[in-house]
Nucleic acid binder design. Structure first.
Lengths: 342, 342
DNA sequence: CAAAGCCCTGCAATCGATTACAACATCTAG
DNA sequence: CTAGATGTTGTAATCGATTGCAGGGCTTTG
């Protein structure tokens, strides 16, 4: 029963043709005669032949796979992007190799080289913290590999990237709150040093100013994108003497943490404070209260990144420095409302 | 600048040794002399050499990679398991290839063969719906590949699997509700035909009976694991004349959908109805109200599956039919309470 | 001092596919 | 009828690493 795995030689023997013909019949069907093609297909069926990717990759000098370096796989935000990458890569015959960059203390280095060389034809990097230039300088082998950053991108990277309009999203959030009548608007930021953090914060500041509102530095609370950060921020908010009546959160998860902790303390949203998030992850519409947020096209982000990477792999080199920016949209739900009169 | 990728030949030339020595110096350092090893390492450094995985895989007849077939990447439940797989696979020198089985109408077939042959050394299958035996019969090539099912497993599969104690979890959930004083307990099931659905449902029934409570068939609502299903179930609950005072939901997401829709309709949890979920995904502790649920060791699930698969790949064949079952725990939070007196 | 054993190294075969090239058959046009 | 074009096929080189085998040098032992 446990027979050998059939090779192209076996197929050729069964079909009564050469291996060259088998190979051609499978990859360029129009280049062989009808009769040969039929014989080959029958033989493939009979033997249960599946091409050996390692041999093909070696010969063709390409892996038919792309690597994805994600900071945190269990974050639903990233997994959606990965799903988008899959949607493009799969049908194009590319496998998707996923690694979590947080895995080693060293950063993603060992994993990157694990994936390196003939293993993948390129990378999509979802981790803005990762030092791409170091990665590329690591070895000649790696420096050849095309890279596309998605979502977060290192500021100085020459690699193409696809992002969303973070500043614009922040502005839409602020405008929504202002339209509702808020004037005391706070912000919980993302983690320090993250490009998303800074662009959203800048967008927040710029929006307030353009609407003629002052920026209270006290209303800007340092945070992170996760649930815990929102909880911590809620504790700070509670202790403030002069509280903002609305908070713009850097992520939906953060907003959940914030709301959760507040309601545990007897406050309610949006009565005591309006909350708006960023991301529009799936559960946001089902939170209590349903979360008003800035919706990112996460799947499209992944799809576009994959498309760009595949193009580069296939030699249609976009000029370096291509940085498309996708639009975000405001989704109004139940966590924002007009402020109650003081 | 855009030089060729260095090969082992280049390293050998620079180091002044044969390729055999380079290969040995890198994979069996103790088998070469100190001086040779030093020369090789220097040459590697100088050239920036990275091994070509395709060539190695071809020669060694192994891919140093495992495939994961998941039903839905954007579901945080699965991505946690994948993270666990990664944690074991990575340090052992294995890459992780992820595919979404929902991707093709045909099921995961094309993807499976995409991954097949020398591309991966084995699979972890997270999709219980997938017809494993068909997959294995597809070709001789595939039938050789070791497979481990995790979480969901096809009932008749001979493949080893790692699961959690779903029936036990259901029982813990019911017991908790009974302890609180509930007697009218309902259940929203998972999707039809899913093994998790049936074991949890059976566990639910068995638990009620063992505690001397009747099973109201009307209180068992058909559902799915997602948010929408919970919302639908809430609509049914609302219209019931004799309503259960507590609901055991087949997943946390479902519970969120249920609670969300109820509160939108002016009901509140746990005052009007207690709700308990299953999974304990990250956000559950931050929901409003924080969700009482059955916690699954998701990371450990992935880690164990990866360990079992790696063992099989390395020839330490567990006897076929090994099916470890991990324990689940009850996590009491705020979505359950004693029923209000009628 | 010779035989046996060990360590280290290099030669060359090998993994399984793809593909350049050449050979051959068949067809077309002059 | 023949030169040339066209279409189909097979031969064999090739991708880059690993590894069985054999040989050379050195040490140990009788």
């Amino acid at each position: 029963m446990a027979t050998e795995v059939p090779t192209i030689q076996d197929v050729a023997r069964v079909a009564g043709v050469s291996t060259a013909t088998v190979s051609r019949a499978l990859s360029n069907p129009e280049r062989v005669s009808d009769s040969a093609r039929r014989k080959v297909l029958e033989a493939v069926e009979k033997t249960g032949y599946v091409v050996n990717e390692a041999a093909r990759n070696l010969r063709q000098q390409r892996a038919n796979a792309i690597g994805v370096i994600a900071p945190d796989l269990s974050n639903p935000f990233f997994s959606s992007i990965i799903a988008g990458i899959e949607q493009i890569a799969g049908p194009n015959g590319f496998g998707v190799l996923v690694t979590e960059s947080s895995m080693t203390g060293q950063g993603a280095f060992d994993h990157a080289s694990l994936l390196a060389s003939a293993r993948v034809d390129g990378f999509v990097v979802l981790d803005g913290q990762m030092d791409l230039s170091r990665l590329r300088n690591r070895s000649k082998g790696l420096s050849q590999v095309p890279v596309v950053s998605a979502c977060e991108y290192p500021e100085d990277s020459p690699a193409p990237s696809v992002t969303v309009d973070n500043a614009g999203g922040a502005e839409k959030a602020v405008r929504h709150l202002v339209d509702l009548g808020h004037t005391k608007i706070g912000h919980i930021t993302g983690p320090r040093g993250n490009i998303l953090t800074t662009t959203r914060l800048e967008g927040f500041r710029a929006a307030l100013q353009s609407m003629g509102l002052p920026v209270h530095e006290d209303f800007i609370l340092p945070g992170d994108f996760n649930l815990e950060a929102g909880k911590l921020a809620a504790e700070i908010w509670r202790t403030m003497e002069d509280r903002p009546t609305a908070m713009f959160c850097a992520s939906d998860q953060q907003a959940f943490g914030f709301i959760s902790q507040l309601s545990r303390q007897g406050f309610s949203v949006p009565e005591d404070v309006s909350v708006i998030g960023f991301d529009d992850i799936e559960v946001s519409g089902f939170f209590v209260p349903a979360l008003t947020t800035i919706s990112q096209p996460r799947l499209e982000l992944g799809r576009m990144a994959a498309r760009m990477l595949l193009d580069r792999i296939n030699g249609q080199s976009h000029r370096e420095g291509l940085h498309p920016q996708l639009d975000v949209t405001l989704v109004v739900r139940d966590s924002t409302a007009a402020p109650v009169a003081a």
